[in-house]
Amino acid sequence: MTINHYIFLSVALFCIGIIGVLTRRNVIIIFMCIELMFNAVNLLLVAFSKMHYLAASVVDPATTAGTDGQLFVFFIMVVAAAEVSVGLAIIVMMYRNTHSIDASFLNRLKH
């Protein structure tokens, strides 16, 4: 498993996420696609962090290089969790008001 495999997987996940966001109108699915994009980025961070660690540990076995990437992933997960709670709350409120979770229903601000 070289780093390329991870990159391809992560790009694939990200593209699926983008396409999902662009094409679907169901808010929950859009939401899930956003999560997918988050996780694509997380995957990439972890992969690169491991790669950096392996490269540095050859010179110095006690190195800590690359660990900050892993830490970042945790931060992203925490933030994403918070964002999920807010996002889901918005979706609930939207459903209560419009009896629908169709994103194209929310174009009313135009007029």
Binding site: L22, L106, K110
Partner: peptide, 14 residues
Amino acid sequence: LQSGQVGAYILIMV
């Protein structure tokens, strides 16, 4: 540009 369509905004962003 301000169509109100979320999809359109995201497309522009992407």
